[in-house]
Each structure stands twice: as C-alpha cells, then as structure tokens.
Simulated scan of single mutants.
Amino acid sequence: MNHPHKLIIVDGIPGSGKSTLSEMISKELTKQEIKNIFYHELTEKHPLFIYDCKFITFKDHSEAEYYFNRVVELFNRFVELHKNESEVIIIESILFQDTLSFAYNMGMDRLKIKALFNLLVDILSRLNPILIYIYQLDVRRNWEMIGKIRGVEWIPSLHTQEGLDEAERDWKPNQEFIKSLIEEWEIPKLIIENKDYLWEQYTERTKEFLEVNSLMSDSIS
C-alpha cells in the first residue's frame, strides 16, 4: 500500500524525547503492517551524517561552504534512494538538531542557514514529508533532566550551574531560530510544546496526527 506521506520527521533539541517518540511511531506502523524504515540518530553509517570531515567553525567561509554543499548532496542522495520505495521513512534529529542547529551553534550566518533550510525543504518535498517537532518551553529544565537521566559521564558540565547557564544560553536562541523556520514550512506539522513532560498525552496526540494524515488507522490500542 502506498501512503500519501513517505517521510515522517521527528525533531527538537537534544534530550527532548525524539528517539522515544520515533521508536513508538515505528512500532505502531509495524503493528498495522505498514512497512517502515527508522533512521535513529545513532544508526551506523547514517546516510545523512558527514563522516569525512571534522569542523571547527563555520565563521570560516571554506568550512561553511563545504558543509552547506555536502549537506545538500547527502539529502539529495537520501531522497533519490527512497523516493521509489514503498516504505514510510522515519528520521529523528538529523534535519534540525544535527544539521541546522549544528550550523547555528558553529556560527554559520543566519541567512545562509535559512538558504540551506529552503534547499532542504525543496529536496524533501519529493517525499511529501510531515513533521513532529518537540518544543521545550523551559530549555534549562530540559538540560537539567538530561543531566540526571544520562549521568555525570555524558556531559559533566550539566551538573554545574555554570554549565546549565551555558546550555540555556546556547540552545534557547537556537531553538527559537529553528522554530521560526518551522513555522514557515507549509507541510502538515505537529508542534508539541513540552512543559510538563506529559508523554502519554503527547503520544496520543502524535497518533491522532498520524491518523489525520493517513499514516495510521484509528484501531490502535
């Protein structure tokens, strides 16, 4: 069976629950015998990650240009790979957190990031995507919770006030910039404003959103 939307994008800042939500979507699609491919952020040899270069700063024009062109190349190749397949594709983190947010944190010019976003929108349109974006209303609390869940060894600075100050300072404007891009993207989208971590409610809203967009039936228990 062919589905109207061949790509489900799940995104948000680090630790916002993207992987958990994406895994749920993949399992529910499988329950309904809908073939799907889930590209977890940690998928080995992820087709949308750049492995052949370590970047220092995108204030360096040559680095920024290489990154920009390589991202466009990888996304084009990804769409060509999947456009004729019957499976629904699920990607988490890679479009916003690991591509555009990364460019933001590396100092790329905002207009250049927006130009990259517009190119990626055009490329991904061939898969008729839908988007689920988890927006953290309290960025600092988000990082505090990540630190507690993942432990001191993950990012030790998240267990200090200075480290939390830095995480909030870096990611709050980053998230606002990304959200401004998302709001311009005219595709079916669900923005989950996460304040109270009501994951059962967010899961049900996600299922309803997928049902409305003909990717699930209402028979899921």
Rank of each mutant, 00 (worst) to 15 (best):
K31F: 09
E200S: 07
S219L: 06
G151E: 05
K27P: 02
L137Q: 14
D11I: 04
Y104N: 00
S125D: 04
E33R: 03
K148C: 08
L111V: 09
S26N: 12
M1N: 08
R169F: 15
T43M: 14
V72F: 01
Y202N: 07
E186V: 12
I91F: 06
G151C: 11
V121C: 08
A115S: 11
Q97N: 11
F78K: 01
I155Y: 12
L181M: 12
N105S: 10
T203P: 04
T20C: 08
A115M: 07
L127Y: 05
F209Y: 01
Q161W: 09
K45A: 06
N36I: 11
L124W: 02
K207H: 10
P14T: 06
W199A: 00
A64C: 14
N142T: 10
K195G: 15
A103I: 02
Y197H: 09
K35Y: 13
W154Y: 09
E200Y: 15
R70N: 06
R169V: 02
L127V: 15
M24Q: 13
E183K: 11
E33D: 15
L81S: 13
E166S: 05
E153I: 05
K114D: 03
D60T: 07
N174P: 01
I90G: 04
L100G: 04
I50D: 03
Q161R: 12
A115C: 10
K172Y: 09
V79T: 02
K59A: 06
L100E: 06
I91K: 05
T206G: 08
T203M: 15
E176R: 12
V88C: 03
K35I: 13
D170Y: 11
P4D: 06
I146Y: 11
A115H: 09
K114P: 02
K207M: 09
A167V: 08
N118C: 11
S16D: 04
K195W: 08
A167K: 07
